[in-house]
């Protein structure tokens, strides 16, 4: 999950350690109201989102949430931004690189939503619990995250 959020192996392991150490320090606060996995997952998710936000502030980069929200109409068909490439020309390495670049352009909240749903297979209610927001917000985040990724990756998934 962390790697899928940050798309950098070393950063992912560092954040995983931060998360585990934080969980160890706060183990006394675990009340058993949710499963231990859910509790630990939330800590790791929060550590990762905090790190992404910190990097965003330090680098001065802005995720294109505003652009996406205003420019993608709910019913709009996604369009590729680059020319379609023959499948043979796109290697796995390139595909991963394109995916990394596309995910990097999402806000931490949109990344979290798409990673939890598409890669970790969590239900809406579970994602809402992890992100401490409503199910409606989760669905909305998923909608726009998908739209943006489709815009950036259409040529990739159309050619594999």
């Amino acid at each position: 999950m962390i790697y899928n959020m940050v798309r950098n192996e070393q950063d992912a392991w560092d954040l995983a350690q931060d998360g585990f150490v934080k969980a160890w320090k706060n183990i006394g606060r675990f009340r058993g109201q949710s499963s231990f996995f859910t509790w630990l997952y939330r800590i790791l998710m929060n550590v990762t989102i905090d790190s992404l936000r910190k990097k965003q502030i330090e680098s001065g980069t802005e995720f294109d949430d505003a652009i996406g929200l205003h420019n993608i109409a709910p019913g709009a068909t996604t369009a590729p931004q680059v020319e379609l490439q023959p499948a043979a020309q796109i290697s796995d390495k390139e595909i991963r690189s394109r995916i990394d670049a596309a995910i990097a352009r999402l806000s931490p909240e949109h990344r979290a939503a798409i990673v939890m749903r598409e890669l970790d297979g969590l239900e809406y209610t579970e994602i809402a619990e992890q992100m401490e927001c409503s199910v409606g917000t989760v669905m909305s985040r998923l909608f726009y995250a998908r739209k943006k990724l489709q815009t950036m990756l259409k040529d990739v998934y159309e050619n594999i």
Binding site: N4, T77, I99, I114, E118, L119, R146, Y157
Partner: peptide
């Protein structure tokens, strides 16, 4: 356009699950 969007979303999901492997 919704049917095409639906198909795109499905393909995107399949791409991520297949290639975005940690």
């Amino acid at each position: 356009e919704a049917a095409a969007d639906y198909a795109d979303a499905q393909k995107l999901g399949a791409l991520l699950r297949a290639k975005a492997i940690a």
